[in-house]
């Protein structure tokens, strides 16, 4: 008994240490967002009084609202499309797997192995000749279908019991119905995890949007943060406030979804 207690205590100690290390930068960001630039560069660790001023000048200098809306728009549309298309594929690859499909899967994996810098120019040419620059389509299309998500769904479909499929077929469900009514509800934890990750990647995507977006009205939050670091003077208080605003949505999404992927209803599988 004492042994497990000690082990438990050790576990808490480890987790608390790891958490403190992980949270520290966020704490620093929050603190910095309330301080004047000069105090931030002087390394203050205490809350300041400049939060409102920073807030005002950030909103005055930059189109925060529209950047937020844009980022949400791109990230949500992208996440939804990506989850559907990739989970369909991942399911297809695993449940109906045969030599041919395994082969296709390996080939698809190759698509993520070339650094984006190399494919960016041809992609840009493609969107520019289709007159699609500066559009939502151009921002999200290249990353809707990713080998990574497909593989993630394929790997988790491996634990999806085939008995369920057989039973459902006997009950007269067709294949697409099985996917929607059986697979999706059972795999909720995978979907929640995939949603978090995809949202985060979409939200933080920077290199591609910055070349494809041409007008101030369509910029994203990471681009807005980049705007603040250019120029001869950087206002670190304002910058950190922007960075904070840019980080929060992912954190909130994670916080809301974590229960779904970490404490999935065991039992639904049965």
């Amino acid at each position: 008994m004492t042994k497990t207690k000690r082990a438990n205590a050790l576990m808490y100690v480890v987790l608390i240490i790891v958490s403190v290390i992980s949270v520290f930068p966020l704490y620093w960001m929050v603190i910095s967002a309330t301080n004047k630039s000069v105090d931030v560069s002087r390394g203050t660790m205490l809350p300041g009084t400049a939060f409102l001023d920073n807030f005002k000048s950030l909103f005055q200098l930059q189109p925060v609202q529209s950047a937020m809306i844009n980022s949400f728009k791109y990230a949500i549309i992208l996440t939804v499309c990506a989850l559907v298309i990739c989970s369909l594929a991942g399911y297809g690859f695993e449940i109906y797997h045969d030599k041919g499909k395994d082969m296709v899967m390996s080939i698809l994996l190759l698509a993520m192995m070339v650094p984006f810098v190399a494919t960016m120019i041809p992609l840009f040419r493609m969107f520019s000749s289709a007159k699609l620059l500066d559009s939502t389509i151009a921002v999200i299309f290249p990353t809707i279908s990713t080998p990574f998500l497909i593989m993630m769904f394929r790997q988790s479909a491996r634990s999806f019991p085939h008995d369920i499929i057989e039973a459902a077929r006997i009950d007269g469900l067709n294949e697409i119905q099985i996917f929607f009514r059986m697979f999706i509800p059972t795999m909720r934890s995978t979907y929640a995890a995939a949603m978090t990750i995809t949202f985060m990647n979409a939200w933080n995507n920077y290199l591609w949007p910055k070349v494809i977006i041409q007008s101030d009205a369509n910029i994203t939050m990471p681009m807005l943060v980049a705007n603040l670091t250019e120029g001869y003077v950087t206002d670190y208080g304002v910058l950190m406030l922007a960075v904070l605003l840019c980080s929060l949505p992912t954190v909130i999404i994670f916080f809301l979804l974590q229960k779904s992927f970490a404490e999935g209803i065991t039992g639904a599988v049965k």
């Binding site: 939804v80 499309c81 989850l83 559907v84 509800p185 979907y191 949603m195 979804l257 779904s260």
Partner: peptide, 12 residues
């Protein structure tokens, strides 16, 4: 979550 996914399905 389900609602969001369903909407997504139909849309995409």
């Amino acid at each position: 979550l389900c609602a969001l996914l369903c909407a997504a399905m139909t849309a995409t």
